[in-house]
Design a protein around this nucleic acid. Structure first.
Lengths: 339, 339
DNA sequence: CTGAAAGCGCTTACAG
DNA sequence: CTGAAAGCGCTTACAG
């Protein structure tokens, strides 16, 4: 099957190729009647302009890129990324933008991918995930002047646009809720410490525990996997003064923690309350269902996409604050049983 | 920052643009010494050929497409797709191919995306997931002559290449294992019945149950979500002659089923044995850990990618059989307790 | 409102 | 082995 070109449409419509181009791109230069006739013919013969030709003649590539820097086993198990991607995608495809995905091994590889995408003119802009406190990707993108939106923050984004959510506030709300239930010994199983949002949560945890006088609070580090979450939980629950409540930095670790508690003969929530950070459907699959901090991740992705298209269009942008995660109490939290 | 072009490299190297092109593409027409010099200069000034210009001059787009037709909540919760994508991606990026992702609402939208990608010359080929028994995408792709690899089968793939795994054999192995443990009343919670692989599993289940004389076996349908898996489980466990073992078509439903059993006061595996089809890390997070049917999904994706690149290169291909899922017994299966 | 033409940055026969 | 040139299919000033 031969692909139709703009010349085919022009011939059928009895106009020049330029006129077809104007009609398709909504530019002035053709009468409304002609425009409608051209659009009808294009639809009829199944014409879409070659993305290559369009990109080459100075227009945009109509594609944006997302590089993911996590190993397969973690990417797969966390619903976060797939939900984010589906939100990003919904917004992009509504504007006829394609999403190019690449999995990378580390920050250097990711920067190399950005350079290549830029040199190849393959994408008009990129999303940056998993922001670190001292992130080399930010200056690299600034240097390339490749439009970008950082998914994360606040701060540490240089001159790049960003979308972020107030994790410090969400964490404080959670701790205050647990304290209101009567908990005093609260532990937190944190994610990868090199990530900015982990640091933000840690600082907030320290701050709120200090403010409320919870001097037995403790944070242990993990890597978001179930195995590490289970190990961290075993360590916490084996200590002489074990916590009565644990906050986990993702849902997978929380589920692993629940399992460990049950295996050690502890009642949840009687002996131990559990809060999961990401509220995915997984949290409602287990028994008891997990109290969780959640927000609309597909919407977050859609907002990031809208922000990126704005940057690409040269419109003024900045840091966009998204909704703060809210706590949904379920069966895994209760007042601590007196011992 | 100005993007370097092939002319910049040619000028620096003191050769023609043609020579640079030959050198970069590994074609004959330049001496080895010149080729090395050209490659060094290209690397030095950060030159990568414009993907648009390359695609326009008849070469390939160096991109392939994957359209996903599942709602966000299901995409997110199933590790399968993200693992598949990461395997696909690993193979593609090793050959400098980009992956274009699009989420679509239904089969018609998916076919429209294929037509557009084809007309735009945006991709050199596509992956087809979630094959149906009477799939309209197959004839549509044949008509477009767009290179494609179906991830699924066997059969129903028309003239398209495919990769598949023997699900019937895996199911039979599972049922035989449960029977060997002493189970006679075995139920199955199936996925969406419109999908070919669900039908293959169902036919195999009927066949093996007939062969082994399990006349109380039953299949109920679900949609892969935890809620539906839980509902199906409640129905099964409330029946007078409840099954002593249940096979779930995915891990999420199996976990939901485990939770329902526990909530109904049944011991797993004493009162009920549970087998999950996809063996993701989730299966090991719960208590007891789930006996599961698993295989290497990233490798499956990598094989599909290799197959697609082969089709694009015009090499002979066909149906490629991948490894059969194998059963990993864990704590959720045991001989049925005598009642 | 329309047509003719240059140009985007490559690839690839073609002639030397 | 190398150079000059056509051509891929668009977009966009420019002249009418």
């Amino acid at each position: 099957m031969k692909r139709p070109t703009i010349a085919d449409v022009a011939r059928r419509a009895g106009v020049s190729k330029g006129a077809v181009s104007y009609a398709l791109n909504g530019q002035r230069g053709v009468s409304e009647a002609t425009r409608q006739r051209i659009l009808a013919i294009a639809a009829e013969i199944g014409f879409s302009p070659s993305s290559a030709a369009r990109a080459l003649s100075g227009a945009t590539a109509k594609a944006v890129g997302l590089a993911l820097c996590r190993p397969a086993r973690i990417l797969g198990i966390e619903p976060f990324f797939m939900e984010l991607i589906s939100g990003v995608e919904a917004e992009l495809s509504a504007r006829s933008y394609a999403l190019t995905l690449q999995v990378v091994a580390d920050q250097d590889a990711e920067i190399a991918v950005y350079r290549r995408w830029w040199a190849e003119r393959r994408v008009d802009g990129v999303f940056v995930c998993d922001l670190r406190t001292d992130d080399r990707r930010v200056p690299a993108l600034e240097e390339l002047q490749l439009p970008a939106v950082v998914i994360g923050g606040p701060g540490h984004t240089g001159s790049l646009a960003s979308v972020w959510s107030d994790e410090a506030a969400a964490l404080a709300e959670t701790v205050e809720y647990l304290v209101a239930l009567g908990h005093r010994r609260i532990a937190r199983v944190g994610g990868l410490p090199a990530l900015l949002h982990t640091e933000i949560r840690s600082d907030a945890f320290t701050e709120v525990c200090g403010r409320l006088g919870l001097d037995e609070s403790v944070t242990v580090w993990s890597d978001y996997t179930g195995e590490e979450g289970a190990r961290a939980t075993r360590r916490l629950l084996s200590s002489p003064n074990r916590p009565t409540a644990v906050i986990y930095d993702n849902d997978v670790m929380a589920i692993a923690g629940l399992s460990v508690a049950q295996e050690m003969g502890l009642q949840v929530p009687g002996d131990l309350s559990i809060v999961a950070w990401d509220d995915s459907p997984l949290c409602q699959l287990v028994h008891p269902p997990l109290t969780a901090l959640g927000r609309d991740i597909p919407a977050y992705g859609a907002h990031a996409a809208r922000q990126l298209l704005r940057v690409i269009a040269g419109e003024p942008t900045g840091e966009l604050q998204d909704e703060t995660a809210h706590l949904t109490p379920r069966g895994s939290t209760a007042p601590p049983r007196v011992r």
